[in-house]
Design a protein around this nucleic acid. Structure first.
Lengths: 335, 335
DNA sequence: TAGTATGATGTAAGCGCTTTCATTTATAGC
DNA sequence: GCTATAAATGAAAGCGCTTACATCATACTA
């Protein structure tokens, strides 16, 4: 592999000049620039990015920690992030946190040890304090889908409370008054926020959530099917359920069918996230759109702006969800 | 940030000794090792991985190129790969190739310029020759889900032909004789192989694929719905269709419902891949299992073995698919 | 007890770049 | 044509490590 030294020799200029044409910020005369370019071409020269990083103390790499690498949600997020950075010539190092405190902390550590210029973190299990402490260390980071008041300027998040509100209101407007709720793990902030929004909507109708019609799931399909079974087992009548994400809604739909119920004739089902497959469930899932890809892009742009000084970039930090009505919700029968 | 130099000073030993205890291969007396460890602890020392890479000409990073970062298939693959490397202390740089020749070549270039120690490639659009040429360059790589005869020792693949065969045979055994086929893009090797397997099974029953009942889709939901419409429009009767992947099968299922057909009463549908959501479609999709996560693991282990000399690792290069019968296929009515 | 392995440690030369500072060369003003 | 200024280029010192190679102390052999 040719080095910068051989290029400089072939072109008959100094190392410094070659370096300058590579980082074309400084002025180099057209003539020498061409000589150098030609020499590079001829030698098939490729700069050694490791050496560049060492010398410039900038690795051009961004560490991404997400809970999982699979699943419709994280996939979209990663796609958005990667696209943005790739275009900027930066590269992306990924790690999975699996929603566990130790693994998340370990992942952050791992990424930091890799000399990332910045981190994009989708963490759920580490404490706010941990993040606040982390913010005092040298590596900058943004938080995706998390609100830490003390770190407000580094948070890119969705208004989950509003989403929960919109979902419930949709059902209420369709006349539903007995609404079951299959929540996400309540130690997760987004799960809690969604439920709070739900409660707020109910309150507007002078209603409160029935504890017997509440089930705490795991954000996965099985959580939805177990949740539905639990609601049914409670013996309490209900005409609709909201699931805190689409995976659980899908599980609930499947379970409903297996148990002989028909959605939305027997009861309506709302999802949340509007992941790709929500259109392909049966019936098509009414849900709340989560602009996850856009938010991934935005996190990347935050980094480009704050860390790589690309000042012409605008960043939006709070996103709003909106309702996607489809076929899994129908008007309530006469109550 | 503390450097190795300060550690050596605090511990009262030379740079080399500190380096030795970090890479604990060489012999260092217990006493000095402890002194050094203690000094590191005290300074909160963390080695600079960039400097390590430059000095050792080993980056401990592996480049991964997949077609997409989202979608159930690639997500599983990445999860498998990441888990394996993370445990080994290596890190993973990812890029998306989007199934386009230029983007794939560019991605490989990008990864190579990042000094990856090895590459794991899931490429579809670049030519065999390109890969053969690439194999002559310094960066080693494995191919996932691709068979290049000249590079057989670097391929980890599924026997797609067998999968196509199993899918068709299942239908034939259920008495179906008029079978539609919604293929993937036929320029992709896996799409072709699956179809070849399909033809082989038909041949065993003295049948050939009806060209009017063949549709070339795009491996996505919309491909499946368009495909079904095309088959229906052909006017040819059929009692079953096989889709070359689960996404298209899901699209076909949804389209069938919209058009007023019932699966499997009106016709059976087979998928391929056994992605996560296949269990949650309605009806539950009969499909062919693709052990994608295991194959991701295996690709990572190939790298560990061949590039990082972990000789105790076994690698399996060819995987076999198998049938997962569920509810979307039923016996053919009397023909 | 001299002679020789052997294990532990130190010295110093890179790895391939970036970047500051000094130097040379070109341009302009008068 | 000569000096003042700006533009282009070069020299060289790192960036924080790894790793031959050299050195030194100790343990063993005969």
């Amino acid at each position: 592999m040719a080095t910068i030294y051989q290029v400089s020799e072939l072109a008959g200029v100094s190392l410094a000049t070659v370096s300058r044409v590579m980082n074309n910020n400084v002025r180099v005369s057209e003539a020498t620039r061409n000589k150098v370019l030609q020499a590079m071409e001829q030698l098939g020269y490729r700069p050694n990015s490791i050496a560049q990083s060492l010398a410039s103390s900038r690795s051009n790499s961004i560490g991404i920690l997400v809970s999982e690498l699979h699943g419709p949600f994280y996939g979209e997020m990663l796609t958005g992030i990667e696209a943005e950075f790739r275009a900027a010539g930066k590269h992306v190092i990924i790690a999975a946190g699996h929603s566990e405190r130790a693994t998340e902390e370990d992942g952050i550590d791992f990424l930091r040890s890799r000399n990332c210029d910045a981190l994009i973190l989708h963490v759920e299990a580490v404490s706010d304090q941990f993040l606040i402490d982390l913010s005092k260390k040298e590596t900058p980071f943004v938080l995706l889908n998390r609100q830490v008041p003390a770190l407000a300027d580094r948070c890119i998040s969705l208004d989950n409370e509003l989403g929960g509100y919109l979902a419930a209101r949709h059902l209420l407007q369709q006349g539903h008054r007995h609404i079951g709720y299959i929540a996400g793990p309540m130690w997760k902030a987004d799960a809690r926020d969604r439920f709070h929004g739900h409660q707020r909507a109910l309150a507007e109708y002078q209603l409160t959530a029935d504890e017997a019609l509440f089930f705490e799931g795991d954000f996965r399909e099985t959580g939805g099917s177990k949740g539905l079974q639990a609601l049914l087992a409670s013996g309490r009548p209900f005409s609709a359920i909201v699931c805190a994400n689409d995976e659980m809604a899908s599980g609930a739909l499947t379970a409903a069918r297996e148990l002989g119920y028909e959605v939305p004739a027997d009861f309506s089902v709302m999802g949340f996230d509007n992941v790709n497959f929500a259109y392909y469930t049966y019936p098509k899932l009414s849900t709340i759109d989560y602009p996850v890809s856009a938010m991934g892009h935005m996190a990347a742009r935050w980094v480009l702006k704050k860390v790589y000084q690309q000042s012409n970039i605008d960043v939006q930090q709070v996103f709003n969800p909106h309702l996607i009505p489809r076929d899994s919700v129908a008007e309530a029968a006469n109550t």
